[in-house]
Design a protein around this nucleic acid. Structure first.
Lengths: 239, 239
DNA sequence: CAGTGGTCTAGACCACGGG
DNA sequence: CCGTGGTCTAGACCACTGC
């Protein structure tokens, strides 16, 4: 995969921040200096620095410089589009995915509406329970338009469907809307999760869009109350 | 307030999207054309378009153009830093803020640690209940370092502390970390909220930083389960 | 005062999509 | 093939910080 110049510079700088070449609370070289050392223009350096800033690794301060932030102060942002696999790997926990249902069929009305499909279009239904350290904690209900995802297997569902879409099918997900609410646990929650006495679940709804603005996927991720955690970095943008 | 050229172009374009001059699912003029009509360079146009894209108003598609998105399809992103006042105004609901506590004192240990203060530093403690349509639904606990916020009054607390910090004190908030978890309701929750039978509350923790990376504020916002809702747009960034 | 990051320009080449 | 957005350059001026 061809990387742009600013991506390479971003990778290099973030590596140097991670390994301590640039220490927390110290300043990066100025943009002019960086442009010189990387043999590039200042605007290109700025794109790399903006990436660092967006990922919470530096803080740019006008007329003073770019300060390296302390990464350990806040465990790394788990915000934006993150799949279960990434999360569990990041947390370094033993985890397992149990596929309960996997079929392609005509969707119920409310799903057809969510995915904005014409009548007669088929949809993949996936129901998966996620187990972390022996406890079934998350119930995932995924619905994929069969138009975009022609084939889906148990093995794919046990790993990351997300990886499959991006790497194998070459579908480039461009943005997603996420909604978090708390709802009463339903029958499926009680059947497939180790719910204990909790009467509610945290529901994370995901709407995933392709580059061309079409909706490809609707997902409900239902979490046991006590194990749910969501972290978000909000950088104050100019506007 | 002096606006940059790309901010003005952003404002102009977003106004034209809102009032229907540019219709949903149609395309904006190309970047070259826009550069021509606004009498500016293409890079400046691109900054404006990136703002539109970040705010969910357009979708840029390589080699094809920028598509205007349908704003009503998803009610507008309530993500990032949003104050209670903004939310309630956006929702157009009758709302009230009840200030229960307001005092400056030496903080308990765990708050001192959260704000990373030296021993002896004072902290403003604020406890506010938020009522929407007659029901007390949110309990806000705010802690401000007195070093940065010397004075705080009931009136300020009944309106937006956020506005006060930004506009009156001139403190420019640059980024914030947000954490969402569910916890058991405590005694204060039961006392100050209309909790009904709910045993849990959704806790939103906010850590607010200034430009120079110092932590100025720690806030806990405790929501009644059934009324909590969080929406987030995640744009897939390059990296 | 010199140095910083923020903005802006007028070019350029590229990969990609669609006709 | 042409037009698109994505990247990149080598300058420039500005407002602001810190000395």
């Amino acid at each position: 995969m061809k990387q742009t110049k600013y991506q390479q510079i971003y990778n290099d700088l973030s590596e140097n921040i991670r390994n301590g070449t640039y220490k927390p609370n110290s300043k990066l070289p100025s943009e002019h200096e960086l442009a010189e050392t990387y043999g590039t223009s200042r605007e290109t350096i700025r794109k790399a620095l903006n990436l660092l800033s967006q990922n919470g690794m530096i803080q740019k301060i006008k007329a003073r410089g770019s300060v390296v932030l302390d990464l350990n102060r806040y465990e790394f942002p788990v915000s934006g589009l993150v799949s279960f696999k990434e999360i569990s790997e990041k947390m370094n926990r033993s985890s397992r995915t149990i596929v309960h249902h996997l079929e392609k069929k005509l969707p119920e009305e409310w799903i057809r509406e969510q995915l904005e499909l014409e009548a007669g279009a088929e949809v993949w239904h996936v129901l998966r329970a996620r187990e972390i350290e022996g406890e079934k904690i998350i119930l995932d209900r995924d619905f994929f338009s069969a138009k975009w995802v022609p084939e889906l297997t148990r093995t794919i569902c046990e790993n990351s469907i997300y990886d499959y879409l991006e790497n194998d099918l070459g579908l480039s997900v461009s943005y997603a809307k996420k909604e978090i609410v708390v709802e009463e646990a339903d029958e499926e929650d009680r059947r497939y999760l180790d719910l204990h006495d909790y009467k509610h679940v945290v529901v994370v709804r995901n709407y995933v869009y392709l580059n061309d603005t079409t909706l490809i996927e609707y997902t409900e991720s239902r979490h046991r109350l006590d194990k749910f955690r969501f972290v978000d970095f909000a950088r104050r943008e100019k506007q």
